[in-house]
Every structure is written in C-alpha cells, then in structure tokens.
Design a protein around this nucleic acid. Sequence first.
DNA 1: GGATAATTTGACCGATTGGTAAACATTACA
DNA 2: TGTAATGTTTACCAATCGGTCAAATTATCC
Lengths: 225, 225
Amino acid sequence: MNFKGKQQPVTIPRAAKTLRRTRIQEEKEEQILEAALDVFSASGFRGSTIDQIAEVAGMSKPNLLYYFRTKEAMHRALIDRVLYTWLEPLRAFDADGNPEEEIRSYIRRKLEMARDFPRESRLFANEVLQGAPHIEDELKGPLKELVDEKAEVIRAWAKSGKIVKCDPYHLIFSIWSTTQHYADFDVQVRAVLGQEHAGEGRFEDAARFLEQLFIGGLRPDRSES
Amino acid sequence: MNFKGKQQPVTIPRAAKTLRRTRIQEEKEEQILEAALDVFSASGFRGSTIDQIAEVAGMSKPNLLYYFRTKEAMHRALIDRVLYTWLEPLRAFDADGNPEEEIRSYIRRKLEMARDFPRESRLFANEVLQGAPHIEDELKGPLKELVDEKAEVIRAWAKSGKIVKCDPYHLIFSIWSTTQHYADFDVQVRAVLGQEHAGEGRFEDAARFLEQLFIGGLRPDRSES
DNA sequence: GGATAATTTGACCGATTGGTAAACATTACA
DNA sequence: TGTAATGTTTACCAATCGGTCAAATTATCC
C-alpha cells in the first residue's frame, strides 16, 4: 500500500527553465505535499492557510510558493497524487473471483486504508462534503466510470444468483461509507467507544462486524419482504 | 420533524437589559441561525466568515454581531439548537419493540433526515471531520451515554436470539454512516449515479437496499464463519 | 408626542490572508 | 574555480479576517 504514486509531475517551479526536476525539487515538493495533506485534511481547503502549511513543512511561505504558485495548485497536486491510489481497492474488485470473497476483501482493504491513511480519507471527505468544487470532474469522470464498471460486475453476480438481488450502486456506497467512517469520524468513534475500546482493536471489531453484516445481508438464500 | 427545537435562549444581546426577548430578537436570531447553518454546513467553522453569514442573512455585519457577539457564539448556538433534534431517531429506539421493525424504522428515519435536513448533517460532519473542537464534550457526554444505553438494548436482543450476535456499537456506526452518507457525500452520490438516477428516487432505492442489507445481515438464522 | 430603550449602520481597527518583488545564498556544472 | 541557474529569505502589498465604536435610526411604552 504505497501512497506515493508515480503520477505526472505536479507543477513546474517558476524559475525552472529546464525540464528535468532536480533532487531538491523532488524533496521539497514531497515535503510540502506531506504538510499540505496534514493541513488540508484537518481543515478543508477554505479553512487551511498557506502559512499553516509552510510552518508544518518547516519552510518559509515564499519558499513554499516557489514550488507551488498558489494554494489551489498545492491542493490540485495533492489530489492528483492521492486519487489514483485511493481507488485501488475498488479497481482490484475482480469479476472472476468468488463474490463473497471479493466483497470481504474489499471491505478489509478499505478498512485498512481508513486505519493507515486517515488523512487521505479526510482530504476527500472534506472536499466532497463542501461540494467538491475542485474534484467535480474526477467524480463525474473516472470515478463514475470505475463504479459503473464494477456495478455491472455486481449486477451480474446478482443475476446469476451468486448474491442476493440488490442495487449495486448503493452496495458500493454502503461499503464506502461504513469503512471510511472510521477515518472521517474517528473522534466520534473514539468518544462513543470510550477509553476501554479506543485502542486499535476497534478496526478488528469493525472488520468482524462489517463482514458479518455484508456477507449475511447479501447471501442469496432467500428473497426480501 | 421540527428542527427549531425549544432549547434554552441562545445568547443575550449586549444592549438587551430586559430579560424578555423581543419579537425582533426572535426573528433576527432565527434569520441569522438559518444563514449560519447555510454557511457553516457548506464550509466548516474555519472556512466560514461572518461576512458570508451576514450577506446570506441579509443584514450588516455589525448588526449580526449585535445578536451574536462572536463567530463562536453563533456556531455554539447553532449546534445547541440542532443537536437534540438530531439524536431523536436514536432516542426513539425502543427496547420493547420488535427488533427487526425498530432497526428498519431507525434506518428510515435517519434516511429521511439525510434527505430533509442535509445541512444539519453536514454541519456535524464538518465539525467531527475536523476534530470536533467545539463539540467534544457533547460527544463524550450525552452522545456516548445515549449510545451506551441503546447498545445495551441491542446486546440484549442478540443475547436472546432475536438478532444475530454482533457488536452493537459498530452496528450503530454502520447505520449512521450509511444513512448520513446521502447527505454528507451528496455530490459524490449524484455524480456516480449520473443524471439518470439523480432524482429524489435515490432515497427510496437507498432505503430499499439498506433495509435489505441490515435486516438480512442481522437475521439470527445462522452463525458467521 | 416625547422619552427611553432597542436596533442598525458606516467607518474603522489590528491581525491575518494569499501572494509578490527583489536581494541574497546555494548548487550544479563547465 | 567561475558562473549561471536554482533555491531561499526579508520586506512588503492589497484584500479580507473577526470585531469595535459612536452615531444614527427605529420601535416601545407612558
């Protein structure tokens, strides 16, 4: 699970007339995006300031703006870098696999992401929650296409009786929401569980429950009322 | 379903030396909180500005600050007003009722709230997502107590075999997350469903799916692997 | 109708916002 | 080692931020 995707170069520094990126550029952009992830995921785009990011990144504001010309550019670069990896688990959804096992492992992967990459989850949650002003195209384009494709897989499973007949889109939504909940609403989950269950064991418990819920709820034994 | 709860008075205007609240006070505070709900739910606390709220409320900033002395006070008042009502559906959860029917109706109610009061949902989502700096006490106090109580109910149901044995806390989390998803991640849901299914029918579809999932997943027929 | 309290507004404040200009420092490379 | 490109910093800018103030306006009540 590696979030440092090898996507396209993020932005080209103003002063860079050469096309090659220097070692310093790599390092500093890495450093900045790491800090930006911290800040944007915690406060959303509007609520975050360049000064905050600069402080977390341990560099001066103008220096930061040397690598990313605007706050928007930083946000853009961050989203581009994270989005592809974020959709990996869904992409791994295999039409030829065993439906029960595919769903189970999809839930597991998504839960692992919520546990290991909560900032990435919150980055998107903040963005979508506030109307997705910067990722509308990604949602309507690549995301929709991927979901459409996988929804077709699920529909086929239902049609052939491998799982119960159900709306594949809402099934996917429910897996997204239940798993990401443990990243996005972490403080609430901790507060409700209390100190007794605040340990990392909650992810195990969640995994157990969600598998129980989804496997049981989708088993093709009987029809619904 | 009335969100204008009859809670304690929000704040007392600086200039108000009388204890009685005037008609104008009622109206203006109402007007301000309505605008504040619009703005805070869309941008979170940090991302919102008093000027924005004043503009939406159709009054000058100093006038707004005459009724609520600070941005925090407005946010506080808004949360106090909405929180109690927001937890109604869970409170209605009846230990003596039929488990299947109670869960079904809880899901329905929560989905109706997501449909009819998406701003309220997003207000809390923004707050929790950003670390719940203003509602930590509410989460650890009243919310936890309520959930603890209802979790005990669910645990009893499981013990007596009325539903499958499962973790009651994670069950509640999963109902919260799946239903609120349709308010908090509305733009994403619309984008993925596309124009074909973007109509209000998606709430019906969601209700159907979620009932199928939860009723099927919790039915006490068999044990889990 | 007049006094008094309640409400509203424009002008303003210091701090913070996103971002710039230019001098300065460092690196890479011939 | 010199020099040109790259990287960093200090000082600064206009706009916006949360919030104040005093003066003006309006509602209330005798």
